[in-house]
Design a protein around this nucleic acid. Structure first.
Lengths: 228, 228
DNA sequence: ATCCAATGTTAAGTTAATGTTAAGATAATG
DNA sequence: CATTATCTTAACATTAACTTAACATTGGAT
C-alpha cells in the first residue's frame, strides 16, 4: 500500500518538483497551495504525512499546524516543515509546536526523502487509520475504536470476537477456514480446538443480532464466510 | 487600530531609536528602562507586543519574561528579545521560556520591523482564549494551566495523570493501547510495566469522581478509551 | 430417509488481563 | 541537603475473556 503525502506550498515550481520526485519514489501525492486548502485536503484525504511550507498566503504554516493538531482527525498526521529561512528560531518554534521534522530550502531531495522515510517509519507502528473502518449496510466495524455498531446501536465485542469479525469482514465472500483463523488471530504456538472457534462465532452471531442474521455463513467442511 | 508596543531597554539611545522608528511605522509606543518598570507598565498598558532587552539593571530580561508568563494578564503578550550576545544558548533559553522571537544587537531596523509584523500577525490570529481546552459536559481539561475542573470543582492531577487524560481526551472514541501511551507520554528509553499505567488510570478515574464514572473505558486486551 | 461427520450450544473450568493497595524509588522543590 | 510530592513497582484480588467438555443439532452423502 503506497503512502499518501500532502504537499503544501504556494510556489508551483516547488510543488511540481516535490510531486515529481515523490511520485517517482512510489508515493501517492496530493497538493494544496494555501493554508485553508491544506486543512480541507488534510481532512478529506487523510494523508500519511504532510510536507508543509511555513510561508503561505493567508494562514501560514504555523497556524495550519496548530489547527491540524486541534482536530482529532488530523491530530496524529506527521508534519515536515519546509522553510526558506535558515534562522534556527523558526525551526525550533516549529518543532515545539509539534512538527516532526523540518527541511530548509533550497531543498535537497535526497535529504527530504530520507526524512520522509524516517517519519513514516516512526508512524507506521501507530494506530489503525480512520478509513480502516468497514461498513456493510447498517453495520460498522471500526478498528480505531474497537467498536461495532449496528444501526447506530453499540455492539460490545471482546477482543477475540472483534478480531475474528474484522478479519472476515475484510475478506467478504471468501471462505475462511478455521486453520486460517487460528494462524491469523491466535498467537503462534497457541493451540485451541475447532470448537473454540465455533463458540466465538456463535457469540458474534448472537451479538450481531437478528438483523444481521446470516452475515456469517457456515460452509460445512470448509469454514466460515462473511456475506458479500 | 494602531498596535501598542512596549519597549524595554536601559540605554536611552536605543530606546529613542526604537521609539522613533516604530512610531514612524504607525505603532503606538510605551517604554520602560528596567525590569520592575517593565512589568508594571505591561500590566497597566496591556501592550500588543513587548520588545525586551535581556541585559537590564535589576531584574533581567529572562526574569521579566518569566514573570510575564506567570501572570494571566500578560501571559499571552508576545515578546521579542533584544540581545547583544549572539550565543545560541541565550536564544534557545529565551525561546523555551516563551519569547516569540529575538533580535540581535546591533539592531537592523528593517529586520526588527519585519519580525514585529510577523509576530503581531501570528498573535492576531491567536484565538482570544485557550481554545485547546477540552470540554466534555461538565469536565474541562485545560492544558494551558494544566488544570482540570469538573462542574467548576478543581481536580488536581499530577503531570503524568494530566498528560494521559489529555492525550486520551484529545482522541475520544479511539482505543489507546498501553504501548501508544508509553510511546507518547513517557520519554524514549524509559521502560515501565503495564501495571504502572493502570495505576495512573486508576488515580485519574478516582480523581474524576463518580460524576465522570465510565469516562475512561477499559477495552480488555486492547487498551483504554475515552468515551465520546 | 437415514446415518454420520461437522457444527451448534451450553455451562462450567481455566487462563489472562486488569484493578487495587501499599510500600519503595525517584524526581522536584525549597 | 532535606523534604515532599510524584512515580513506579510488587503482590495480590478481582473480573472478564477464553477454552473446553459434553451433548445436541444439522445437513449432505449414500
Amino acid at each position: 500500500m503506497s503512502k499518501k503525502i500532502l504537499i503544501v506550498d504556494d510556489e508551483k515550481d516547488i510543488l511540481d518538483l516535490l510531486e515529481f520526485n515523490l511520485q517517482n519514489e512510489g508515493y501517492n501525492t496530493v497538493t494544496a497551495s494555501d493554508g485553508e486548502q491544506a486543512l480541507l485536503t488534510a481532512k478529506a484525504e487523510n494523508p500519511d504525512l504532510i510536507i508543509l511550507d511555513i510561508m503561505l498566503p493567508g494562514k501560514d504554516g504555523w497556524e495550519v499546524l496548530k489547527e491540524l493538531r486541534k482536530d482529532p482527525q488530523t491530530l496524529d498526521i506527521p508534519v515536515i516543515f519546509l522553510t526558506a529561512k535558515d534562522s534556527e528560531i523558526d525551526e525550533v518554534l516549529g518543532l515545539e509546536l509539534g512538527a516532526d521534522d523540518y527541511i530548509v530550502k533550497p531543498i535537497s531531495i535526497r535529504k527530504l526523502l530520507a526524512r520522509i522515510k524516517k517519519v513514516l517509519k516512526r508512524s507506521k507502528t501507530k494506530q489503525p487509520e480512520n478509513d480502516d473502518r468497514i461498513i456493510v449496510d447498517e453495520l460498522v466495524i471500526d478498528p480505531q475504536s474497537y467498536k461495532v455498531t449496528s444501526a447506530d446501536q453499540d455492539i460490545v465485542l471482546t477482543k477475540k470476537e472483534f478480531d475474528i469479525l474484522y478479519y472476515m469482514a475484510k475478506r467478504p465472500g471468501r471462505v475462511i477456514t478455521r486453520k486460517i483463523l487460528l494462524d491469523e488471530i491466535w498467537d503462534e504456538n497457541v493451540v485451541v480446538i475447532d470448537r473454540t472457534i465455533d463458540v466465538h462465532i456463535r457469540k458474534i452471531r448472537e451479538k450481531l443480532g437478528t438483523e444481521n442474521m446470516g452475515l456469517i455463513e457456515t460452509i460445512k467442511g470448509v469454514g466460515y464466510r462473511f456475506k458479500v
